[in-house]
Each structure stands twice: as structure tokens, then as C-alpha cells.
């Protein structure tokens, strides 16, 4: 703003303006004129020191801010938690009619005595479909990042891998091998038991699939990749993985179609089959993670 030094000159200016003797100063132009002249572009060194300074300041204040944010968050959460309904009461708001319905009609409507299995495979089957897709995509993403092939493996890595394989082949771990020879059949048996009994006892696709994957991992760790390739190579692995997901989609599609059109469901044990499909997907995921992280190839 144009501050007049005295009342007199301000009055004179106004009179001049009213008389039309002179235009008032253009304010914006005036501001532009008052600006200090622009500096020439700062040099790279100056930029670097400024960046360093800024980074230094950030590093000093970051822990303080982090602790403050964390404490604030914990305070809010604690305040929320302390007003929650008491733990373990039967008439808590979470135990509403949905849970009651599942418990009361679950066996009748889905044919599965384990209500959790009934819920995740029938009532909330789309949710489980999403989960299976998440697992499938997780393996795909890890594969994208870690899979070794001709393009991203240089000579050095290749030789190192071959050397390690040679050492493993020359000196097999006898204890691990013997233990695996005894244990692997039982692990597979137990996995099948858990998979097939998901309807009537604790268990189901996710736990059974994890046990199955653990058995595969044990076998692969004991007998090495060469032996494992006989059982499951990259092509077969991809086929099984996709087959599990497609089987799930097909079966659940039929299941939903039958249920939505009030058609009689003659396919008893449908949940069992869906359970098996989920188990396949989960087993492939667990085993795939192990293989990709340990070796990067099948």
C-alpha cells in the first residue's frame, strides 16, 4: 500500500485525482517494482547444501514427530477401547442375529457342521473368492519380482547357483533326508484329513492347504530341487495353481446359481469340493513363496 507520509500530501493527492490531473498508481505494478531483483539461478553446490540441510533437519525431527503421532494414536485407541463393551459377555452388540442365524441354520442350509467353514465357503463365499484371488496375485507378484530366467540372471549368479547345487548334491543332509522320508507321508495324510474334515471338525481349506504346502516344502528341502522337479515342475505348478482357482470359481458359481434359483441341490458335499479347491490354492501359494524366495526357480 502506498502510505502517505502526512495528511496534507494525502489530501493533495486526492484533490489531484478528483480533478483528473493524474492517475493513481497502479498497485500491482507498484508491488512488482518493489520486489527485490531476482537472483541468478543458484548453483548446483548451493542446491546440494540446501538439500542436505533439509534432509538433516528432517532426520532430526522425524523420530520426535513419529513418537508424538504414535502416542496420540495410542491415546485415541486406548480411549476407544476403554469404552468398549465388556469382554466375553453373551449380550454384546457383536453377537447379533446374524451370528445367531449362522449358528442355528448353518448345518441345515449348507450341510456343514463347522459354522466357520459354512460361513466362509457358503454365506461369505465371494469374500473367500477374493482371498483366493489375493493369494494367487501375491504369488504372481512375487514371481514377477524374484523368478530367475535367462534374461535377468547373469553368468556370476548362474555359476553360484550351480556351485551350491553341486555341494548339496555331493553332501546331502542325511538327518533331514531320513526325517523327511518318515514324515512326509504323514504330513500329507494329516493335510488330507484336515482338508476333508473341514466340514465337521476344526480345519478346512486354509489350514489343510497350509499343511499340504508345508509337506511340499519339507520334501523340497530334503531332496533338493532336482528330485522336486519330478513331482512338480514349473508348468505343473502353474497348472495346479490355476486349476484350484478355476475350480473354486466354477463350483461356487454353480452353488450360487442353484441357491439363487431355489433349485434343489443334489450335489451334497459341495462345500467339501470348494474346500479342496481353496486348499489347492493355499498349498500352491505357500510352496510357491518358499521356492521363489529360496531359489527363484522351480
Amino acid at each position: 500500500m502506498n502510505k502517505t507520509p502526512s495528511k496534507q500530501s494525502w489530501w493533495l493527492r486526492l484533490v489531484e485525482w478528483v480533478d483528473g490531473d493524474r492517475e493513481p498508481k497502479d498497485q500491482t505494478l507498484f508491488v512488482m517494482e518493489q520486489r527485490p531483483p531476482r537472483h541468478v539461478q543458484r548453483s548446483d553446490a548451493e542446491f546440494a547444501t540446501q538439500d542436505k540441510h533439509r534432509l538433516h533437519r528432517f532426520r532430526r525431527w522425524y523420530p520426535v514427530c513419529a513418537v508424538l503421532i504414535c502416542l496420540a494414536l495410542m491415546g485415541i485407541l486406548m480411549a476407544a477401547v476403554l469404552t468398549m463393551p465388556t469382554f466375553g459377555e453373551a449380550d454384546n452388540p457383536i453377537n447379533n442375529e446374524v451370528a445367531e442365524h449362522y449358528l442355528e441354520y448353518g448345518l441345515e442350509e449348507t450341510g456343514s457342521a463347522n459354522v466357520v467353514t459354512a460361513m466362509i465357503l457358503s454365506y461369505r463365499g465371494f469374500d473367500t473368492l477374493g482371498e483366493s484371488c489375493v493369494l494367487f496375485l501375491a504369488v504372481a507378484a512375487v514371481m514377477m519380482l524374484l523368478l530367475r530366467d535367462e534374461k535377468n540372471t547373469d553368468e556370476h549368479d548362474q555359476q553360484k547357483q550351480e556351485r551350491e547345487d553341486g555341494i548339496l548334491a555331493a553332501h546331502p543332509d542325511l538327518i533331514l533326508r531320513r526325517a523327511a522320508w518318515v514324515l512326509v507321508p504323514f504330513v500329507f495324510l494329516f493335510a488330507l484329513y484336515v482338508l476333508l474334515n473341514g466340514e465337521v471338525s476344526p480345519g478346512g481349506g486354509f489350514s489343510g492347504g497350509t499343511i499340504l504346502g508345508a509337506g511340499l516344502i519339507l520334501y523340497s528341502a530334503a531332496y533338493g530341487p532336482k528330485q522336486m522337479r519330478v513331482l512338480m515342475d514349473a508348468r505343473r505348478y502353474a497348472a495346479v495353481r490355476t486349476f484350484g482357482l478355476v475350480l473354486y470359481v466354477l463350483l461356487y458359481g454353480i452353488y450360487i446359481f442353484l441357491g439363487a434359483n431355489q433349485m434343489p441341490n443334489y450335489l451334497t458335499g459341495m462345500t467339501l469340493l470348494i474346500d479342496l479347491a481353496v486348499g489347492l490354492v493355499v498349498a500352491c501359494t505357500v510352496y510357491g513363496f518358499y521356492v521363489l524366495f529360496s531359489r527363484g526357480e522351480f
Partner: peptide
């Protein structure tokens, strides 16, 4: 009986957690 719904939700959460962990570990590698 206990409420089966939170158990199912935890299952979903565990699956997502495993996937995210594997993906971030792969990125770190």
C-alpha cells in the same frame, strides 16, 4: 457357541497379511 463371524474375518485378514508380507519381502530382496 462363540460368535463365528470374527473368526472368519480374522481368516481374511491373515491371508491378506501373508500376501502383503511376501510381496514386501520380495521387494526388499
Amino acid at each position: 457357541y462363540i460368535n463365528p463371524i470374527p473368526s472368519g474375518l480374522v481368516l481374511t485378514g491373515i491371508v491378506v497379511s501373508v500376501s502383503i508380507t511376501a510381496f514386501s519381502l520380495a521387494l526388499i530382496q
